[in-house]
Amino acid sequence: MGDSRTGSKSRWAVVPLLVFAVIVFGVPMLVLLGGTFTREGTPSAANLTESLQGAYLTSLIGSVKISALVAVLGGVLGTFLAQAVVTSRFRALREGVLTASGVLANFGGVPLAFAWIATLGNSGVVTTTLGLGDHGWSLYNFWGLTLVYLYFSVPLMVLTVVPALDGLRPQWREAAQNNGASTWQFWRYVGVPVLTPALLGGVILLFGGAFAAYATAQAMVGSSVPLVTLKIADALTGNVLIGHENVALALSLDMIVVAGLVMAVYLPLRRRSARWLR
C-alpha cells in the first residue's frame, strides 16, 4: 500500500519536466510541422515540394554527402586509432588519448573553424609556410570542410569504440585459435560481427553530428558549399522570396526525417551491442 501511494505521488515529480518539454520543445515542433504545410495562410504542400527541388535539394544532398563521407572516414580512422590505443601497453598513452578525445569531440562550432582557417586558410600558417596557395590549395570547399569535420568526428568515434574494443575478450580470440582459426578468420567470424553494432552506432553518431553542424560551416565556407543548414539559416534570416518563408520549415522537416531515420537504425543496434559486450 505504501508503495502504490509513493508511486502516485512521485509521478508528480516527472510532470514539470514533461510540461516544460511539451511547451518549449513540442510547440515549436508543432508550429514547424504546421508551417511546413501552410503557404500564405492556406494549407499546401508547396513548401515541401519546393524544398525537394533545385538548389534546396542540392543542399540537402550536399549535407547527406558530406555527413556520410565524414561518418565513414571518421569511423574507419577512429576505429584504427582506438585499436592502436587499446592494444598499447602504455597506460598513459591510453588515458591521454581518451582525455584528448573527450575535449576534441567537443571542440566544434566557430572556434574550430577559426583554428583551421589560421592553419590552412588562405593566409594560414601552414598554407603560407609550405606555399600551398601556389598549388591551388583552398580550405573553403567540400573537401576542406570534410577535413575540418573529421577533427571532432574522429575523437567522437574513438570515445564510442574504445569500450567496445575493450569488451572483446581475449578468450574469444584464443578460443577461435584453439578451433583452428587464423587471425583473419577470427576477425571475420567473431571480431567484426561482434563489433559491428558498436561501429555502426558510432558511424551514425558521426553522421548526425556532421549533418546538424552549422556554426563551423557558416564561419568557414559561408555559402560556397551547398549545405542544408546554411540554406535554412539563409531562409530564416530573410534571404528568401516573399511568401516562401516557410520553405525553411519544410527543409527543417526534411532534416528531421533524415536524422530520425538514421537514429531509428542506431537505437536497436546499441541495445544489441550492449548485450554482447557486457
Binding site: R169, Q171, W172, E174, A175, A176, Q177, N178, N179, G180, A181, S182, Y189, V190, P193, V194, R275, W276, L277
Partner: peptide, 17 residues
C-alpha cells in the same frame, strides 16, 4: 591454431554473436 588440443576456458569464452 594448428594444434590438436581442444580447450575449455574459465568463463565467457563462447562467441556472443
Amino acid at each position: 591454431n594448428r594444434r590438436d588440443a581442444g580447450m575449455v576456458f574459465q568463463s565467457y569464452s563462447l562467441f556472443p554473436n
